[in-house]
Design a protein around this nucleic acid. Sequence first.
DNA 1: CTCCGATCCTGATGGC
DNA 2: TGCCATCAGGATCGGA
Length: 270
Amino acid sequence: MPELPEVETILQGLRPQLVGVKIISVVIRRLNLRWPLPVEALRQLEGRSVCALMRRGKYLLLQSEMGWIIFHLGMSGRLTLRSQTTPAQKHDHLDFLFANGLCLRLTDPRRFGAVLWSCTPLEHPLLVSLGPEPLTPQFDGGFFFQRCRGRRVPVKNLLMDSHVVAGVGNIYATEALFKAGILPIRPAGTLTQMECDSLVSATQATLVEAIQQGGTTLRDFRNGDGAPGYFQQKLLVYGREGQTCRHCPELIQQIRLGGRSSCYCPGCQI
DNA sequence: CTCCGATCCTGATGGC
DNA sequence: TGCCATCAGGATCGGA
């Protein structure tokens, strides 16, 4: 569910409420998500304070004096703040109860998400091989051009590959390709340096605007405070198959790439 | 190394 | 109303 802008939105909501606050207890209702929960480490958090909250790609990192908890929300995960009296519902798997009366609750119906533990999170196997953050100078047209060279997979697959660049999912890759005027099925190796420059700029502009809008709520995304995002109102092609392009008279088309649906305009994208 | 498809799981939706 | 198929924001894994 959540791509980079949604995780960033959650992070910005949680940070002022939780940093410096002591964790009183941790309630574990399910021992397994995608992988087993680090039960021992979660127990050791009790009585410790939150030192910092950070994001890397789609991962949300919580630092305590004992080490770091790594969250990944998968397709359907949510992290929300609520009062400690709110009863747990069907897919509420994990609660952190804080000294200020708040409860941080992890909900994940599909259970593709993960909760992991590490003393050095950036060296964790799942994070160490991630590509650069898309909103840093490391991710530029030259970098992406080099990663595309010799590759015959559709460029959209590369843009969504977290080992190439971390945090760009299906919605934002689809939107960025439209903004850059590039067809999602173009073999990555056929992109010119200029097209890579354009695609990187479009990706960054899309992510920045989505963060400003508080993310995209297609079904049930909510930030830490339970509020929806508004970027869905700005979507140019995602989910618009069969409708008229916003920039020309053509109809938006839909194809499947790597098992994911991709929308594009045959008039605007080459 | 590259690429493709299967896979983990539940819930919403639409056709019949 | 029920049943079934399809689809959904992710990322890993195995095999060709």
